[in-house]
Amino acid sequence: MTQPVALVTGITGQDGSYLAELLLDKGYTVVGMHRRSSTLNFERIHHIQDRLILEPGDLLDEVSMMRILRSYHPTEVYNLAAQSFVQTSFGQPVLTGETTALGVTRLLDAIRMVDPKIRFYQASTSEMFGKAQQVPQSEQTPFYPRSPYGVAKVYGHWITINYRESYGMHASSGILFNHESPRRGLEFVTRKVTYAVAQIVCGLTDKVTLGNLDAQRDWGFAGDYVEAMWLMLQQDEPSDYVVATGETHSVRELCECAFGAANLDWEKYVKVDEHFMRPAEVDLLIGDASKAHRKLGWAPTMSFRELVETMVKADIALLSARSR
């Protein structure tokens, strides 16, 4: 039996690295698409880099994606690449739209022209719900995005459905709620907090500045969520799935848990600055993943507290190693 081939865009990101590990463990040949730049960052995939095929390509360039598809003949494509930071999308709305919205169309169209039998996964997001119209949010909840990133993701979600229905493609979207890990970028609030705790423990700073402490999110472990991605493409029929824990926690709770893991009182170190407030805030996101439980047999394995404590320990170990 021939070894299955998967193409992963955004392979150098948090989700890309966990998904690549999962696919390698399942016997796939993994082709990772990355943007060519003067400073390549392969830190998250360094430990598996010798087992991957890495190809330069860009969601802004359909020709580069067609070249990769024709060269490696993947059976599955996972589109994880995007301008994925909400705050940045307010400052760079056009670039966010080009990459996060139109980039999905370019990749779907490349697949349609090269081999429409390829199974396609689109990384959708809970940010599409934005000003949530119902609680909890399911696959039937209307979208109300509150950032250029959320708007672009809604476009990517609907163009995936459009290609599925127009061309009979096996194209599925995972509406993933916030998912974190020690590999999360420092610009995201979870990692910003856990890294700050590590800096304080190591004597490198004495505070962390945040925005809205009352914002509530459904936070899970990224390693769990990539398994749901893979499961979607193993189904006979394509569909869309909410992937979430079904629990909500505030940024304040995140601080309490992270600082508590280091036996620190968070209120002594956390400062609030309006500069970090979004122009349009998303206050409450909590997902109903019952369809994923029922159809995919998927369930999260790591609790919120375990996740935050794992991230704090990893960041303390990281900074301690650097100071040696």
Score class of each variant (00 low, 15 high):
M113A: 10
V114K: 06
V114R: 06
V114P: 03
D115F: 03
D115A: 04
D115N: 12
P116E: 15
P116K: 14
K117Q: 15
K117G: 11
I118D: 01
I118G: 01
I118Q: 00
R119K: 14
R119N: 07
R119D: 04
F120I: 09
F120L: 08
Y121I: 05
Y121E: 04
Q122L: 02
Q122H: 07
A123C: 14
S124G: 15
S124M: 07
T125I: 03
T125D: 07
T125F: 01
S126W: 07
S126T: 07
E127W: 07
E127A: 10
E127R: 07
E127S: 11
M128Y: 11
M128N: 14
M128I: 14
F129V: 02
F129M: 04
F129N: 03
F129P: 01
F129E: 02
F129S: 00
G130S: 03
G130C: 01
G130Q: 02
G130V: 00
K131D: 05
K131Y: 02
K131R: 12
A132D: 11
A132L: 13
A132G: 10
A132C: 14
Q134L: 04
V135S: 15
P136S: 10
Q137I: 10
Q137N: 10
Q137F: 05
S138P: 01
S138E: 06
E139G: 14
E139D: 14
Q140G: 13
T141M: 09
P142S: 11
P142G: 08
P142W: 12
P142I: 09
F143G: 05
F143I: 10
F143M: 14
F143D: 09
Y144R: 15
Y144E: 15
Y144S: 15
Y144L: 14
P145W: 04
P145S: 13
P145M: 09
P145E: 13
S147Y: 07
P148H: 10
P148C: 08
P148M: 11
P148V: 09
Y149F: 07
Y149H: 06
Y149S: 05
G150F: 04
G150D: 11
V151Q: 05
V151F: 02
V151K: 03
A152P: 01
A152E: 00
A152T: 00
K153R: 13
K153H: 03
K153D: 00
V154K: 11
Y155H: 11
Y155V: 02
Y155P: 02
G156A: 12
G156L: 06
G156R: 07
G156D: 08
H157M: 04
H157Y: 08
W158R: 05
W158H: 04
I159G: 03
I159S: 11
T160G: 09
T160S: 12
I161R: 06
I161P: 00
I161F: 01
I161T: 06
I161M: 06
I161V: 08
N162F: 10
Y163G: 08
Y163C: 09
Y163N: 14
R164G: 02
E165K: 13
S166Y: 13
S166C: 14
S166F: 13
Y167E: 08
Y167N: 06
Y167A: 08
Y167T: 11
Y167H: 12
G168K: 09
G168C: 03
G168D: 04
G168P: 00
H170I: 05
H170C: 04
H170T: 04
H170Y: 04
